[in-house]
Lab assay of single mutants.
Amino acid sequence: GPIITTQVTIPKDLAGSIIGKGGQRIKQIRHESGASIKIDEPLEGSEDRIITITGTQDQIQNAQYLLQNSVKQY
Rank of each mutant, 00 (worst) to 15 (best):
K72Y: 07
D40P: 06
S17E: 10
D40T: 03
A35V: 05
K72D: 15
L67C: 02
G1A: 03
K12Y: 03
I50E: 15
S17Q: 14
E32C: 05
I51C: 14
T52R: 11
G45A: 07
G20D: 14
A15Y: 08
Q57I: 02
G23P: 06
Q7N: 01
A35R: 00
I4L: 02
L66T: 10
I4D: 10
G22H: 08
A63F: 05
I29W: 14
V71D: 14
E47W: 04
D13F: 04
S33Y: 01
G20Q: 14
T9F: 01
G23Y: 13
S70T: 09
S46G: 06
K72C: 03
A15K: 03
Q61K: 08
Q61H: 11
D48N: 04
T5N: 15
Q73S: 14
Y65C: 09
G1S: 02
Y65L: 10
N69S: 15
N69T: 06
I53P: 00
D48R: 04
S33M: 01
G34F: 02
G20K: 13
N62P: 03
G23R: 13
L43K: 13
L14R: 12
T6E: 14
I10G: 01
Q73W: 15
H31L: 04
L66D: 12
E47C: 04
E32N: 11
K72P: 15
P42N: 09
R25L: 11
G16F: 06
G16A: 09
R30F: 04
L66Y: 06
R30A: 14
G22S: 14
G55P: 00
K72V: 06
T56S: 10
H31I: 07
Q28S: 10
L43D: 14
D58K: 05
P2V: 12
L14E: 11
G23E: 07
D40Q: 14
T5D: 06
Q28L: 05
K21I: 09
Q28R: 13
G45M: 11
R49K: 09
V8N: 03
D58N: 09
E44R: 10
V71S: 08
G16L: 08
N62A: 12
P2Y: 04
K21H: 07
D13L: 07
Q61A: 09
H31G: 12
G34H: 07
I18H: 07
I37V: 07
H31Y: 04
Q28I: 08
Q61P: 01
I60M: 03
V8H: 03
I18P: 10
K21W: 03
D48S: 09
E32H: 03
Q73H: 09
Q24I: 15
T5E: 01
E44Q: 08
K21F: 07
L67M: 07
I19A: 06
E41N: 10
E47S: 05
Q28A: 13
E44K: 13
D58M: 10
Q7M: 02
Q28D: 13
E47V: 08
Y74L: 15
E47D: 05
Q64A: 02
A35H: 00
I53A: 01
L14M: 13
L66V: 05
I51Q: 01
I19Y: 08
E41R: 07
I29Q: 02
I39A: 08
K27Q: 15
Y65T: 14
G22A: 07
K38R: 11
L66N: 02
I26N: 04
I10T: 03
R30D: 10
D58G: 10
A15H: 05
I4H: 07
D13S: 10
G55A: 01
I60H: 02
Q24H: 15
Q7A: 05
